[in-house]
Amino acid sequence: METLERLLSQHPFFKELGGEYMQLVTGCASNVRFEPDQFIFREGTEANQFYLIREGRVALQLFSPERGHITIETLGEGDILGWSWLIPPYSWHFDAKALDLTRAIALDGKCLRRKCEDDHNLGYELLKRFSHIMGQRLESTRLQLLDLYGVRS
């Protein structure tokens, strides 16, 4: 537990969260490991976790019958994976597949949601942090959509 708390508190996502909240968060955390090509979650299933990737790479994918598994984005060391646990209907919108051997800290979303309902300050802190990540991902997606490297017409 102590190492988990140390690992979590060193991550920029939890920076300055405060000791008391860190303990609450750590209470919902566990170490997990995924083999290459193992699915971490599948589209449409219940979203009850998020992950802090410590090592390895994860592909966020969508399946299309015409084009197969399409990778939308890859995430790696230090990245946060998943926010569907935070927003109803709490179900995954993508598949997540480990590309390499991946170690992560899983945070139990159900446990955190309960704690956030009990203590709105904690809820606000987590929402602020997730909004920041969502903003970054949205910006990256917009740049991806621009097809910047295409020939100007």
């Binding site: 084009r67 984005e73 740049l143």
Partner: peptide, 22 residues
């Protein structure tokens, strides 16, 4: 990294700016 992966591509997908933190 590439903006759009193709089937079989196991490398990174995402804009180049996402590599800066890596």
């Amino acid at each position: 990294t590439v903006d759009r992966g193709t089937p079989g591509w196991r490398g990174n997908v995402g804009v180049v700016t996402t590599l800066i933190t890596k």
